[in-house]
């Protein structure tokens, strides 16, 4: 379908963009890559009266890596992350997750900030943000504030971002050299929304114990979630086949996905258990017997 009518502005200063959002309240929407918002408008699930195109505002598309971590500007596109040799070293989990975002053409336009603001429960970037304790930097008429990813996603397609606030940056804590990690998701076809997905990392000790384990899931609830029960099954232990099974079972037991047209909730729950096992095995470099 065609999008409903709207007016369009393309400010080149951040304060002007915020001014437009502040003056029009919930009637205005920011657009950058538009890869989620334009389909929402085509389906008329979204009908903003004013689109504020923030795509030409300078200073929002930087990728910076230093001792404090990684900073991604809101306008950084998936293709920028995929092609960044620096990020491949500085945050391989992020790069691997981004390779699963939609399709080639969409990765050429879609942005980090847009994905966070859209807050699809199955989207990769919100999952990485929650798994990795990201901080989301937003600005509005009342100034700048930093929202922890765990506090940012309120419900499906809903965040704690106010209507007159804009995401300008996401910050990820620094990656450690001894880190083991994996990203696993399952979709019926390449590029489809994940039916479920798991991101995880831990710091591997010399004796093989896993510490600082972080496990997050997408596609199994209203928002991305940390799988704390599965984390507890792994933390400070050596990863073995039985620990992997325990973690998978704990992951599956800790979620209650709803039935929808794509899959019954029980299917997603079982899938999450399998993906958790696969991700842990991959991170630990262990072969998994699927029939075990």
């Amino acid at each position: 379908m065609k999008a409903p009518r709207f007016e369009y502005v393309r400010p080149t200063r951040l304060e002007d963009a915020i001014g437009f959002l502040a003056r029009h309240g919930g009637d205005a929407k920011a657009i950058a890559g538009g890869q989620s918002l334009v389909p929402m408008m085509a389906f008329r699930l979204a009908a903003p009266r004013l689109l504020v195109d923030i795509g030409r505002i300078p200073g929002l598309n930087g990728i910076a890596v230093d001792d404090d971590g990684i900073r991604l500007g809101a306008l950084v596109r998936w293709r920028d992350i995929e092609r960044s040799a620096e990020l491949q070293r500085a945050h391989p989990l992020l790069v691997e997750a981004v390779r699963h975002v939609a399709h080639y053409q969409i990765r050429n336009r879609g942005t980090v900030g847009g994905s966070l603001a859209h807050a699809d429960p199955a989207a990769e970037m919100p999952g990485i943000a929650v798994t990795c304790d990201a901080q989301i930097v937003v600005v509005g008429p009342r100034g700048r504030r930093i929202i922890a990813a765990a506090e940012f996603f309120a419900a499906a397609l809903s965040t704690t971002l106010a209507a007159d606030e804009l995401i300008i940056e996401v910050q990820l804590p620094p990656w450690r050299d001894n880190r083991r990690w994996a990203f696993e998701e399952f979709a019926r076809r390449r590029g489809d929304f994940a039916l479920a997905g798991v991101a995880l990392f831990y710091d591997g000790g010399a004796d093989g114990t896993a510490t600082n384990i972080h496990i997050g899931a997408i596609g199994v609830g209203d928002t991305p979630v940390r799988l704390t029960a599965a984390e507890s099954a792994v933390e400070a232990k050596r990863i073995t086949a039985s620990i992997i099974r325990d973690a998978g079972a704990a992951a599956a037991a800790s979620v209650k996905p709803a039935d929808d047209i794509h899959a019954p909730g029980e299917y997603r729950r079982a899938l999450l258990g399998v993906l958790t096992e696969r991700a842990l095995a991959r991170a630990a470099g262990l072969a998994l017997r699927e029939d075990a």
Partner: peptide
């Protein structure tokens, strides 16, 4: 017209993009 089929792909500043997933005004 909602970004799943790829029939409308054009090359915008060197990158393949779905021409149904952007408004013409964004291509200024």
């Amino acid at each position: 017209e909602h970004g799943v089929c790829g029939a409308c792909t054009v090359i915008l500043d060197g990158a393949a993009v779905r021409a149904c997933l952007m408004f013409a005004v964004q291509a200024e």
